[in-house]
Design a protein around this nucleic acid. Structure first.
Lengths: 334, 334
DNA sequence: CTGAAAGCGCTTACAG
DNA sequence: CTGAAAGCGCTTACAG
């Protein structure tokens, strides 16, 4: 009983025209009389006709498909993926999802493999890759990496912009904080590296004391461990955590040490995770619009695939939200 | 310069055989002499040959593609997606990601549309759909819904199994708790409905007091609001939150009310979110292996697509972890 | 055991 | 303005 999908031939027969006329009518390309065109369109619609993408792809030599590479992490990848899927759909591409686990090398290999596969017209990776290992032939599909900062790579780099951390640290210094600590994220994330770099530059510039940079993960465990490793006289202290998960661990570790927040120490995070406004104390953080970041990354990929100029980002993605973990600040007191 | 992807014709020429021999050699179907076959395989590998999937698809009338429908939510969808992507890849399918926003009706329409599109062989949705509106023709692709519980639908239902909540509530009652409250999740999630049902059945069965069921969201806001709305004499109280995000809001709201946890009230959540072990107090919860849930959902879809028996799940996905928010329990004290 | 050939459903010069 | 025809790269009966 299962009535197969109608083809352009079926539509042609029903409309009383040739198959090529159907194709021209639907694509709007050739020179079809308006009346003919409308008639064909009406018939096609009434039959629920949908072009067979595989056939089109074979003829046009374009797969109409893009790939996104992701994996499991404590992160906001699904939001980025959502934004990316939205833009890909608007641009008329199907989006293949590839989940990759393992080392950065393994991921890089997978990305290279995809780019060379000929099955997709472009690759967007949300996982860090090894730029040096990402050697692509001329005929490989373009690759956009959201988490890498490298001259060789097309990258949006927006998530790696750590500029606001300077603002945060100077505001804390202006509020009287004199001793800082940075609990960093994983080295292979561009965002983690630039946060660390801005931290180091800013404590240097302000001439405040730094207990150094510890940790290399996005996890609460890392923040907690950093607190447990501190000497008893470490407080008063301002802790700059690489993101909110790390900051949450700092909160937890501080509680275990008997340090009050924001009394004995203050903490800042990054990303405005779903929980950050509801911890006690709530977390001062730098919200990131990950859905929009995903959209922008995909727009960049689509532009690369089409050989167009990459779009210029308009509004900045980040800002600072001062909450209880720093006793608030700029807005409220000083 | 861009050397096009080699085709089976190119391989045939290089190997000195016919194109159909190449095809047979690669598929292992026909009757090819072992030596010929090995030779062809070697040549194909050396040329980096990869079959053109669009051409194969057109010939076999099978797209080799599955669709997954997801969207932005406070949830663990990326993990499920990861598991699903893994299984789809193993089974030889490409996985198209579709991001959908809007009402349950809009989502359902999108799922129906995909199933009828003829572009994919099956659809897996991680977002709730309206079962009644999901009317599929005989020739539509099979649909698996992870979050629905409906006779009409293929559904794994595993995430909707709330049985363990009975264990939790009786353990709390055994520990002396006499007054309960349920802060529920969104009605249209099967898991939220079954947690509520088990809650109601269990307080009834145990004959303990229930302050009722409030809320209908997966958010911390919902849990906090529930606490702020309670009368001063509501404590001592055992709060059963629909998931850890809600439980986090309960923790926050309790703090704002000046209620200690687990002193004045105890709280349980669900899912073992990334933050749950690091809140103060840490959250008693029911960890769910979302990656495995995603795998199972996809296995079910693949079986449906191939007309095979759905696989029987082996190990249960859930268990209880007793933490500080209930003053621990079963394991430690009683 | 191997090869010549048809055909999947499109797009796009090319004739008329 | 419309139609007949080639061809994208495969799979798979069918001859030999």
């Amino acid at each position: 009983m299962s009535a197969r999908q109608p083809t352009s031939h079926d539509v042609a027969r029903a409309a009383g025209v040739s198959q090529s006329t159907v194709s021209y009518a639907l694509s709007g390309k050739g020179t079809i009389a308006p009346r003919t065109r409308e008639h064909v369109l009406a018939v096609a619609a009434s039959m629920g006709y949908r072009p067979n993408l595989a056939a089109r792809s074979m003829r046009t030599q374009r797969s109409g498909r893009l790939a996104v590479v992701t994996g499991v992490t404590v992160d906001n990848r699904l939001r980025m993926l959502t934004g990316a899927a939205e833009v890909a759909a608007e641009a008329g591409y199907a989006l293949d999802t590839h989940s990759v686990d393992g080392t950065a090398e393994a991921r890089t290999e997978r990305v290279v493999d995809l780019a060379r596969s000929g099955q997709v017209e472009g690759v967007l990776t949300f996982l860090p890759v090894v730029p040096d290992a990402l050697t692509l032939d001329d005929d490989a599909a373009p690759v956009v990496a959201e988490t890498a900062l490298d001259e060789q790579l097309r990258t949006t780099g927006e998530l790696a912009d750590a500029g606001l951390l300077g603002t945060v640290i100077s505001a804390l210094a202006a509020a009287g904080h004199r001793r800082f600590l940075h609990v960093a994220g994983p080295e292979h994330f561009a965002s983690a590296r630039s946060r660390r770099d801005v931290y180091l530059a800013e404590v240097e510039r302000l001439g405040v004391e730094s207990l150094g940079v510890v940790g290399s993960a996005w996890s609460p465990e890392s923040g907690r461990a950093a607190m447990l490793a501190l000497p008893d006289d470490a407080v008063p202290l301002a802790v700059i955590a690489a993101n909110d998960y790390v900051a949450l661990g700092v909160l937890r570790g501080a509680a275990e040490r008997g340090w009050s927040v924001p009394g004995d120490l203050v903490v800042t995070g990054w990303d405005d995770a779903d929980f950050s406004a509801f911890t006690s104390p709530s977390l001062t953080t730098i919200p990131v619009d990950f859905v929009e970041a995903g959209r922008r990354a995909m727009r960049r990929l689509v532009a690369a695939v089409r050989g167009e100029e990459p779009p210029r980002p308009t509004a900045p993605l980040q800002r600072v939200v001062w909450r209880e973990s720093t006793g608030n600040l700029p807005r409220t007191a000083g």
